[in-house]
Computed example of a mutant assay.
Amino acid sequence: MGYYIKSVVEIIESNYDNFTDVEKNIADFFIHNNKKQKFSSKDLADKLFVSQASLSRFSQKCGFRGYREFIYQYLEDFVEKEQDVTGNISQVLNTYQELLNKTYSLVDENQIKRIINYLNTVEKVFVCGKGSSGLAANEMELRFMRIGVNIDSITDSDQMKMRSIFHNENSLAIGLSISGNTEEVLYYLFEAHKKNAKTVLITSQNKKAYKNYCDEVILVPSLIHLNHGNVISPQFPISVMVDLIYSYFVKEDKNKKEKLHDDTLRALNIKIEKEENDL
């Protein structure tokens, strides 16, 4: 696991939309900086044309007590970015590795355990998303259905609106939205919360408003500040997180769940054999 390095850059990115314009200027500096050096609050304030108080407020919004604690952690976890990488293949693969590093920095094992508890106690699971997040929702349904979870995926906007009312305290609603701005997904979670369902949002943004209707907000890396982020599948960060949840879920009562998975494979093979015999 030594290849994965925790970094405060992911914390900055997940809180980016909560910053003022001045704080975004500070955030951009730390996100794109690739030189390890000492940053006194006075020197950096002068360099960025901001006040030292702004640096302190920025640090507190990132979850630190102040700038001194923030910069200590930033320098402690700092990884200099290689500038001599050549070749499109290397750049794309390095971008995927960077996403994995970011996921490692954001993942909360205790939070995953809480999600597993939801999966084990509710009667019905609904997962919704649009576009690439919709594809991830479909895949999540297929994978968890095969190990015994009563789960449906919803990718149509009208379906999300209509089915949002069919919730109760025995259901779990999971919304997938990398941007955190997909209105239909947020509406679905809001309405499900009103019906006392458990609600989970998987997103790259950490907005205070989510806490009003989401029991859990699972943070995944953003593609915005990545080199070659535009050629990386947008569903990749969500797929990695779903894999982590799936892995934890299968680990509990592993023999039973692996048997269910194998039974679905046998069912598919029986169907294929029957069709071949009919030919």
Rank of each mutant, 00 (worst) to 15 (best):
M1D: 03
M1H: 08
Y3D: 07
S7Y: 05
S7C: 04
S7F: 07
I11C: 04
I12L: 08
E13L: 08
N18K: 14
T20K: 09
T20H: 12
V22L: 14
N25D: 09
I26P: 00
I26K: 06
I26A: 02
I31V: 14
K36F: 14
Q37E: 15
K38P: 03
S40V: 08
A45L: 07
K47G: 00
K47A: 05
S51C: 08
S54T: 10
L55W: 07
S56G: 03
R57D: 08
C62F: 09
F64K: 09
R65C: 02
G66T: 06
Y67T: 04
E69W: 04
I71V: 15
I71N: 02
Y72H: 12
F78V: 12
F78E: 08
F78M: 11
V79F: 07
K81V: 10
E82K: 15
E82V: 10
Q83C: 03
D84I: 13
G87A: 12
N88W: 12
I89Q: 09
S90M: 05
Q91K: 15
V92F: 14
L93D: 02
Q97F: 15
L99T: 02
L100R: 07
L100Y: 09
K102Y: 01
S105N: 06
L106W: 10
L106I: 09
L106R: 12
D108Q: 14
D108I: 11
E109V: 13
Q111R: 12
R114G: 00
I116Y: 03
N117P: 00
Y118R: 11
N120H: 13
N120L: 14
V122L: 07
E123N: 15
F126S: 10
G129W: 02
S133H: 01
L135D: 01
L135P: 00
A136N: 02
N138E: 07
N138L: 08
E139I: 08
M140L: 12
E141S: 08
E141K: 13
M145C: 06
R146W: 02
V149C: 04
I151N: 02
I154G: 01
D158I: 15
I165S: 12
F166C: 14
N168I: 11
N168E: 06
E169G: 15
E169Q: 15
E169I: 08
E169Y: 14
A173G: 02
I178P: 00
N181Y: 04
N181P: 00
T182H: 02
T182N: 09
T182V: 07
E183M: 08
V185T: 11
Y187E: 10
L189H: 03
L189I: 10
E191D: 05
A192Y: 05
H193K: 15
K194D: 04
A197K: 06
T199S: 08
V200N: 05
I202T: 06
I202A: 01
Q205E: 10
Q205F: 01
N206P: 01
K207P: 00
Y213I: 00
C214M: 04
C214N: 04
D215E: 12
E216G: 00
P221N: 05
P221T: 11
S222R: 01
I224A: 09
V231M: 12
Q235E: 07
F236I: 10
I238S: 01
S239A: 11
M241L: 13
D243R: 12
L244S: 06
L244Y: 11
I245V: 12
Y248M: 13
F249K: 07
K251G: 11
D253Q: 15
K257Y: 07
K257T: 08
D262H: 10
T264E: 14
R266N: 14
R266M: 14
A267T: 14
I272Q: 14
E273R: 15
D278T: 13
